[in-house]
């Protein structure tokens, strides 16, 4: 017996979708719930699309493809890392990064919509996204790309069935549908907002390795319910001196960000044990030699946001 909430979502999709639709699926909790709900609602009438921007974590693409297969979802994977890196060349301002990425996503989806003759785009936008995107009175804290980045003249009709739901509502749906519920939230623009300053292939590769180490160390030492709401790394445009085996080095700095929250609206930085932090830092600097300094972000939200950009 499906829950009232799931039925509402399924009905909304059936009511609003006319003809074919495409669905922006990042493999995160929100869009995955939407992809499975859409399969229940209208089967293969919707094509779920995962865009490999090159700004995603190690193994992300493989994980998402497994998810599509496991739930029998009609899917397509776009390999567009070259395009995104070109579009982001030389861009430093965070809001511009988000807008450029958002627009590139939309251009890709418009192209794919034409290919599959779909007029509708389904997106997993949930309540906190549209709050932070600045409405009439709200200050634009950060335009979440799946809302803020939408160019005005988008000729795809948008369906956002999760628009009034909070993270905890979506988690309930995720449990009901048998999805992996211990996925931490991952931003739409991906690692682009965790490379502070200009994005280069080299920095992204470093960040991917450090991110994997942070996730592995935390996920292997903590049960899902004890893990921070979000835990990740940020690579800073700061080089500092180091000494590697009696040789002077001039390496990269990464920051660890781990925050406790229930719905991302507020948060307190996670208080790790000192020994855990020392092991984590040593593992990072050993396995990623170009990083010779690891710092910890100890700022709550507010005044800081969870992500750095």
């Amino acid at each position: 017996m499906t829950s009232k909430l799931l039925n509402e979502i399924v009905e909304k999709i059936r009511k609003e979708l006319k003809g074919k639709g495409i669905l922006a699926c990042s493999g995160g909790t929100d869009s995955s719930v939407l992809a499975v709900a859409s399969k229940l609602a209208v089967g293969d009438q919707i094509l779920s699309i995962f865009v490999d921007t090159g700004l995603i974590r190690e193994g992300e693409r493989e994980r998402v493809e497994l998810f599509f297969k496991k739930f029998g979802i009609n899917y397509k994977i776009l390999d567009e890392s070259k395009l995104f890196f070109e579009k982001l060349k030389g861009i430093v301002d965070p809001e511009t990064k988000r807008k450029v990425i958002g627009q590139t996503f939309i251009e890709l989806f418009e192209r794919e919509a034409k290919l599959s003759e779909a007029e509708f785009l389904l997106q997993g936008t949930i309540a906190p996204d549209w709050i932070e995107s600045g409405g009439k009175n709200r200050d634009t804290i950060k335009s979440h790309h799946n809302v803020g980045g939408l160019p005005e003249k988008m000729n795809l009709k948008l369906i956002e069935p999760l628009r009034d739901l909070y993270k905890d509502d979506v988690r309930e749906l995720s449990e009901e549908l048998g999805l992996n519920t211990s996925l931490q939230p991952f931003p739409g623009p991906g690692l682009a907002v965790r490379v502070i300053g200009e994005i280069t292939g080299e920095k992204v590769e470093i960040l991917k390795k450090v991110t994997r180490i942070v996730e592995e160390e935390i996920e292997s030492s903590m049960k899902p319910e004890n893990r921070p709401w979000q835990y990740f790394a940020v690579i800073l445009p700061v080089r500092t001196t180091g000494v590697h085996g009696d040789k002077r080095s001039y390496g990269n700095t990464v920051a660890i960000r781990a925050i406790d929250s229930t719905d991302a609206m507020t948060g307190t930085f996670h208080k790790f044990e000192w020994d855990f932090l020392e092991e984590l830092s040593t593992k990072i600097t050993n396995e990623v030699p170009s990083v010779n300094r690891v710092v910890l972000d100890i700022t709550d939200k507010p005044p800081a946001t969870i992500e750095w950009e």
């Binding site: 709050i131 409405g135 009439k136 009175n137 709200r138 804290i141 909070y166």
Partner: peptide
């Protein structure tokens, strides 16, 4: 009454 706060939605909730 919404004065544009980022937590207005939470007051409703």
């Amino acid at each position: 009454v919404d004065n544009g706060g980022q937590w207005t939605h939470k007051e409703w909730k």
